[in-house]
Design a protein around this nucleic acid. Structure first.
Lengths: 233, 233
DNA sequence: GCAAAAGTGTTTGGTCTACACCCATGA
DNA sequence: TCATGGGTGTAGACCAAACACTTTTGC
């Protein structure tokens, strides 16, 4: 299908030939599933019938803003409708060429796994453990893109309340601690973790109780609906 | 001259019309001049003979990587040849339209003011105090871009050794403190500042002495040539 | 000798870390 | 009654902030 997108040639102001890369938007969707960070990928077979995984992506249309392009690509490719999104980086290097002259604007997306499981169309996507991505075949430079984005997720976890976008609305403190331990790959002391989080005023009690474990636990929610800087660690 | 760059139309895979924004690269060059953060801008007159300032920018060509495009634009527009550079963000929104359908990939550049003054071609550019940019007329959304980039510079100063790229090779501690005070707009205690910086092992003594002030001062240099994370503040 | 910037320590309060036992519930 | 995860406090080490006087040089 790609032959429909020709390489784009212009004349520059000195009347020389001039070609531009075509802007595309790539989405790295992370969630936490079975105590691991996972990434959402599309699967297809290449010309030799090897399975190749790729990030959801598409060409940016100038009819819409980048965020609107993101929403449209996300929904068309995965059926997921609403997630936390953040622009990460824009890559272009002809030497890594690369998907037919596409410049890739990479977005990070986070989603709570239960919402993901309800919304996603599993005939279109697969969920892959981050720890397994070195063992699968990824489309062009998508492996680098995923690793870079994972690093950015780590940083964001350390100094913002971004954990809220990977958790449900109300949660036990131990679940929050679990998110930090999984993403940062590091254990925390239960008491020290609670003291730190409370001192930041990042979360508040909801006065609801979760009775699904042996001993019932208090439920908390985030104070701030938006991503905000908190010196977490 | 811009009529030579037509709006780019394609057919998508369903044979619908489809247009893309054209990738361009904008450079926000900061330096510190006369105890203020300053930004380097191009000046031109608009159709009503008002002075309009703009960031150095140009269309990205697919012949080169983004960094190579950066170098080429920087040199052609300002005659500056080598600076610290870092990609900041990619903006596209047709509602803020905007420079004839250009998607802007924004880069931050930093340069030590004396190198800037030696290299730059002042027939092409002007240096404007950051505190004055609300009082000048800027090209389309360049005001927002400059403010966003300045914010990112602040953050980088707080947790990396990026100050090295705005200072000369060897410097007095008081000059380093000055850079922090100017960019972060905040005063520090001399003794506490020194203790903090030394504890980080971010800088080292050069055993040279600067005799240009009343009492001579030791000169220091950065340990690391590359930008590296240091929890400065 | 005076103006200007350099250089230098201590005290105090706060924050971080390490660490272990009892509790409430369901099976 | 036992297994599971929830809930809680203290002591010591380390770090951060506040604070002022003496030194070296040029003029």
């Amino acid at each position: 299908m790609w032959h429909l997108i020709p390489e784009t040639k212009f004349k520059d102001i000195w009347n020389h030939d001039f070609t531009i890369p075509i802007p595309a938007l790539d989405i790295v969707i992370f969630t936490i599933y079975r105590w691991e960070v996972c990434v959402v990928l599309l699967k297809r077979d290449d010309w030799q019938c090897n399975t190749v995984y790729a990030l959801p992506w598409w060409i940016v249309t100038s009819w819409f803003s980048l965020e609107e392009n993101f929403d449209s690509i996300l929904e068309r490719k995965t059926w997921i409708t609403w997630v936390y999104k953040e622009q990460i980086y824009t890559f272009w290097d002809p030497k890594r060429d690369n998907r037919w002259h596409t410049l890739s604007i990479v977005y990070l997306a986070l989603i709570w796994v239960d919402r993901f499981l309800n919304q996603v169309d599993f005939t279109k996507v697969e969920i892959v453990k981050y720890s397994d991505i070195d063992n699968i075949k990824l489309w062009f430079d998508h492996l680098d893109i995923i690793k870079y984005t994972k690093q950015r997720l780590r940083w964001k976890m350390e100094y913002t309340n971004i954990a809220k976008d990977i958790l449900k609305e109300e949660f036990r403190i131990s679940q929050l601690q679990e998110v930090y331990e999984i993403v940062l790959w590091k254990k925390f002391d239960k008491r020290n973790f609670q003291k730190k989080i409370f001192k930041l005023n990042m979360i508040k009690e909801t006065w609801n109780i979760d009775k699904t474990t042996n001993r019932p636990a208090k439920l908390y929610s985030f104070v701030d609906k938006n991503v905000k800087i908190y010196e977490v660690l």
